[in-house]
């Protein structure tokens, strides 16, 4: 009797152990396979990229330092002129920052409306929430360069195409992040306001915005950091600002290294400065959340 029970128990322990080991082995197999596929993808991807590149990876590797060294040595030789050059390119830098600031501002306003109209429970027209969500998805998916290049063709070069392009992308990106915050907003103040006969805009302004404002501002600041980089890059394809000056400095025959160095310094300093500033503000706003 007792022997039989022990036997059964031992058997079930054995089966459990067997199936556990089998499961572990299967997991290891899957993990190994995933790793293998990943390694194959990385290696073959690297080979394809290397093959389709004008210069090879190994030939180029030891030349990486050449250009920075040339730029630095020329800048060091002409270091007396550097403050003058920095002053010369400062207006272009201000334009780049302005593009980023305006597009963040406009994008945040657009994203605010997209998020409130696209969040269930808050929407002005509940039936249209999917429309606003898809709109922000599409606006987010269009890379800035696409809109910028088309607008440069229509209105000519300058800050305006970059501003519009970045603002559209920002509105889509912030619309999504904002609506994730708005979904978690407490609806009680909204209901309370609705019971007093408040209109939709009053409900949003007084019931929702005070709840979500810290997170919204934090996300907008994060976007501002990203947008400074984006507006510098767009300048390189013809839309004003420091990127445009950089392209001109680079395209000048061998390149005017002292000018390029001044622009590099300005751009690096600006990005680091605004990164630090905005991360300090964001930490104060959300206590480290909203990353």
């Amino acid at each position: 009797m007792t022997d039989a029970t022990i036997d059964v128990a031992r058997q079930s322990v054995d089966t459990i152990q067997d199936s556990y080991i089998a499961q572990v082995q299967r997991r290891r197999l899957y993990g190994g396979l995933t790793l293998l596929i990943f390694v194959v993808l990385m290696v073959s991807g690297f080979h394809i990229a290397d093959e389709r590149n004008a210069g090879g990876f190994w030939e180029g590797l030891h030349q990486i330092g050449d250009y920075p060294a040339d730029v630095l040595s020329e800048a060091w030789q002409k270091r007396a002129e550097l403050p003058g050059l920095i002053a010369k390119y400062f207006p272009a830098l201000v334009e780049t920052i302005n593009i980023a600031a305006v597009s963040t501002l406009l994008g945040a306003i657009g994203g605010l409306f997209l998020s409130l109209l696209g969040t269930r429970g808050l929407a002005r027209w509940p039936r249209l929430t999917p429309v606003f969500r898809r709109t922000s998805d599409i606006m987010r998916a269009v890379p800035e360069i696409v809109i910028a290049l088309v607008l440069i063709f229509v209105v000519g070069g300058g800050p305006v195409p970059a501003m519009i392009a970045i603002a559209i992308h920002t509105a889509g990106a912030l619309g999504k992040m904002f609506s994730e915050v708005a979904e978690n907003a407490d609806l009680k103040p909204v209901e309370g306001l609705a019971s007093t006969g408040a209109t939709w805009s009053q409900r949003m302004l007084l019931g929702v915005l005070p709840q979500v404002a810290p997170n919204y501002v934090s996300y907008a600041l994060l976007r501002f950091e990203i947008n400074i980089r984006a507006s510098a890059i767009l300048g390189f394809v013809g839309a004003g600002g420091i990127g445009y000056e950089l392209r001109n400095a680079m395209g000048w025959g061998q390149g005017r290294y002292d000018d390029a160095a001044a622009i590099f310094i300005l751009l690096f300093g600006t990005i680091v400065f605004f990164d630090q500033l905005s991360s300090r503000f964001r930490n104060r706003l959300t206590g480290g959340l909203g990353q």
């Binding site: 690297f46 394809i48 004008a54 180029g60 390189f236 690096f268």
Partner: peptide, 28 residues
């Protein structure tokens, strides 16, 4: 980390394009 982040993709692209020439590897 702060340095490579601060230099930004634009400047890295410009610098790397000098070493590796145009193509997908430079962008990657």
């Amino acid at each position: 980390f702060d340095f490579v982040r601060g230099v930004d993709a634009l400047i890295w692209t410009v610098v790397l394009a000098r070493a590796f020439g145009p193509g997908p590897l430079t962008g990657a």
